[in-house]
Amino acid sequence: MNIELIQALEDIEKDKGIPKKMLLDAIEAALKSAYKRDFGAAGNVEVEIDESSGEVSVYSKKIIVEDVSNPEQEISLEEAQEKNPNYSMGDQVEIEVTPGNFGRIAAQTAKQVVIQRIREAERDIIFEEFANREGDILTGIVQREHKNNIIIDLGKTEAILIPTEQMQSEYYNPGDRIKVYVVEVSQTSKGPNILVSRTHPGLLKRLFELEVPEIHDGVVEIKSVSRESGHRSKIAVYSTQKDVDPVGSCVGPNGSRVRAIVDELSGEKVDIVQWSEDIEKFIANSLSPAEVVKVEANEEANVAKVIVPDYQLSLAIGKEGQNARLAAKLTGWKIDIKSESQLDS
């Protein structure tokens, strides 16, 4: 332990942002534990590192007593006054007890402590960086599969795509570049644990925000999203400016914008519908691409009766009820769909 250690700690402070004082305190605490372990000392030992020279000293603190019964913690007045004649009964005396070979132990311990603290600091930096990305989209590279989980390389760290967050229609091959939605970031002893999703409705919302400039600029707003990942989704949009078509903005020239999103979601169909303050109009729009004759909304029961032409009934309900189910999620209303002939009978 010498001036080279101090210089190294100063370099770490500049490069990694870890305060030198924090590292010195950690090294002193570790050396104190090492001394007690290797030399069987009591709890009254202190370790000090000279911040200028890097020299390490070990001191044993003892109380001056008349009759010494515990030599590790007590010292007689006569012995204390040999060191300093000004000592008196009850004073605390610091006696240097630095072992001859303690420099080697100190150097090894300091190296271990510094490496550990650097790792902890790097983990903290990564955690803080990604903790601010919850609810956002990240692009990563599929790394490997582990116990049905897909491990995704994000550059500085890895993310986990658990089975319930994987799209059943997708295969994740090593080297594939994919976009994922950050569900949760938590800190663990091994570093940040980043849980991501390919099924979350937020992924669809964020993809539209990335792809559609009008959404990014606040001209078009996403009011709600409903999604059955890998199959079909619906998104309700609204324009804050009368001369801007929200649906057309999301579709893009020749369908380019929505097509890019569909491609990213491995062919998942996306219905873009116009949101309206008029709940009956919004419910009718939500059942797109089906045509609606009439909507009767019961606001007290939050139930809407929807009438469609006979030839549109199966389209309105959708395969296995999917279209009606997504419309209900999108609007937050229970939707009862009837054909015109069913209404007459």
Rank of each mutant, 00 (worst) to 15 (best):
M1H: 08
I3M: 05
A26R: 02
E28M: 12
L31V: 14
K32F: 05
F39R: 15
V47E: 02
K62I: 06
V68Q: 06
E78W: 02
Q81R: 15
N84D: 15
G90N: 13
G90T: 02
Q92P: 01
E94R: 00
R104S: 14
K111Q: 14
K111N: 14
V113S: 07
E122H: 06
R123M: 07
I126K: 01
E129Y: 10
R133A: 02
E134V: 13
V142R: 10
H146G: 00
T157H: 04
T157I: 14
I160P: 03
I162M: 11
P163G: 06
P163Q: 13
E165V: 04
Q166E: 08
R177Q: 10
V182N: 08
V183T: 07
K205R: 14
R206M: 12
E214A: 11
E214T: 03
K223C: 09
E228K: 08
H231T: 15
S233G: 13
T240D: 01
K242Q: 11
V244N: 10
P246D: 13
S256W: 04
A260C: 01
E268F: 05
I272Y: 10
P289A: 02
A290Y: 00
V295E: 01
E296D: 10
A301W: 01
N302P: 03
A304E: 02
L313R: 00
L326A: 00
W333Y: 15
S339P: 01
D344Q: 12
